[in-house]
Design a protein around this nucleic acid. Structure first.
Lengths: 267, 267
DNA sequence: CCCGTTTTTCCGCACAGTGGAATTGACTCT
DNA sequence: AGAGTCAATTCCACTGTGCGGAAAAACGGG
């Protein structure tokens, strides 16, 4: 086949018709209202007869759909159902681990992964740095949302009503002198967090401990998990904050993308 | 191709490799943890080399994914992204209409489609029967959830907490002597509804009017809309209830499938 | 270390898939 | 209404793609 001959274009290979069918599907996703056969042909650069045959096959498998009235082609149900199989197969922890490790390497600090569960943050995984002095959070450990980096990152991405409910159910407790233990101060901090792109826990959970965290979003743009990076005041200095915050935010975005999440909530 | 020769199996036709690739994707969705190449071969009945080539192609397009460690294949991100394109193009009313018409034809009664909106059921569409005496609900009309077939079908599929909130916000009013106007009686009826598979409004909204309704579920198994069938006591007799209920439930399931919903809530 | 199993690569043959061309159909302009 | 235009669909003969048996490579026990 053409892909096997060394002279052909760089990345091509594999099963031609499958690849073309996928290109057609991709084209269909670009237009909300659907595409005409001709538009599909232009988009993927195929002969009308070929595109039509692929579309027909996809339609028989319900991966594509035509509106008999308008003749517009769009993505079919089964593409949706099959695609959702991805969600079941994804294992947050194992998928995120490479990125977490990279973040630990880049920052030199301990990295954590946590999800919200029943009003608390639950750590799912940790990648420890090699420093003597380091933060420690076993997978499965739970911390309040209002006084942890991961917790504040998660809350900052929640709907206001959800935050309100959480605050009503679990009034902020005071863990250290720095803890934001009033709703007002907490809500203001969440606002700052959203604007900044990452959450900062400045000795709010434990004296001498600083955390920088960012949220991983699900397919609806809602909070799914959070990554954090934690270490002693001595190493997480004010000067390093912007850099570290950027690293964490970038990692969170990378994991979000890898898991099929969207950064902007769907309107 | 084999599909063109008259002697071959009935439904085959179209592009073979595309069809096979889709079969492979379907197989991948059956196992949460992923499948080995061998398992995929068994599932779709292809030679290992063929299945492997298809999987590799799908992987290059990110429609499939291999875990390098375990060698398990699963559905990829782009299958998910592309599949979600379906949501943008799906239109509840126009997609449901053929099924609604069929239901009207099978039952001989007026058929309605409604969604929940701000604690009330809103009718979106109606297919009227030819009887002189018939129920009438203009699209856009709103009825309380607790005293309508569609409303009860929707509530029966909601999370207990959501039902609780609704009851708190809008205490059940009394429309007829038969109206279930206490939370206890209503909750008990929802329990019966779930077990039975369809909701029954027995003169709870208007004297002489009976409704049978069932829920259409979204991709998370949550309530998305409801179909109902309504008519006078004289025609919707006790004897016909099981038959009509079955018809409505079947229609709701058909529409659910057409829209990519799942009947069993995801655990 | 060797042997059974699974995954991956290779390759020649056959036919599935391609695309040009013809047909049908829908719609417009005169 | 009839002619003309353009898009969608079907047809068909040629050929390069995709097939699968087989061999090679990578695992993974024992």
């Amino acid at each position: 086949m053409s892909g096997r001959s060394p002279s052909s274009r760089g990345e091509a290979g594999g099963v031609q018709s499958v690849r073309r069918a996928i290109a057609v599907l991709r084209a269909l996703t670009t237009a909300d209202e659907g595409l005409t056969l001709t538009e599909v042909c232009q988009a993927v650069g195929l002969a009308p007869s070929t595109a039509h045959r692929l579309l027909t096959t996809l339609q028989e498998e319900r991966f594509a759909r035509v509106d008999p009235g308008t003749g517009l082609w769009s993505v079919g149900v089964d593409a949706f159902s099959v695609g959702n199989g991805f969600l079941r197969a994804r294992d947050l922890v194992s998928m995120a681990r490479p990125e977490l490790r990279q973040l630990m390497y880049d920052s030199g600090e301990t990295v954590n992964l946590a999800v919200e569960d029943d009003g608390q943050a639950t750590y799912l995984a940790q990648v420890e740095c090699r420093e003597m002095m380091r933060a420690f959070a076993k997978p499965g450990a739970r911390v309040p949302l209002h006084c942890s980096g991961v917790g504040k990152a998660l809350m900052a991405a929640m709907a206001p009503s959800a935050v309100e409910r959480l605050l009503a159910e679990r009034p902020p407790t005071r863990a250290t002198p720095g803890t934001l233990d009033t709703p007002d101060r907490l809500l203001a901090d969440l606002e700052v967090t959203r604007a900044r792109g990452y959450a900062l826990d400045d000795q709010e959970q434990a004296i001498g401990l600083r955390c920088v965290a960012a949220v991983i979003r699900d397919e609806h743009g809602g909070p799914m998990a959070a990554v954090s990076l934690s270490g002693p005041m001595a190493r997480i200095t004010d000067a390093r904050l912007p850099t570290l915050g950027g690293l964490v935010a970038r990692t969170a975005r990378a994991i979000t993308a890898k898991l099929g999440g969207v950064v902007e909530p769907v309107g």
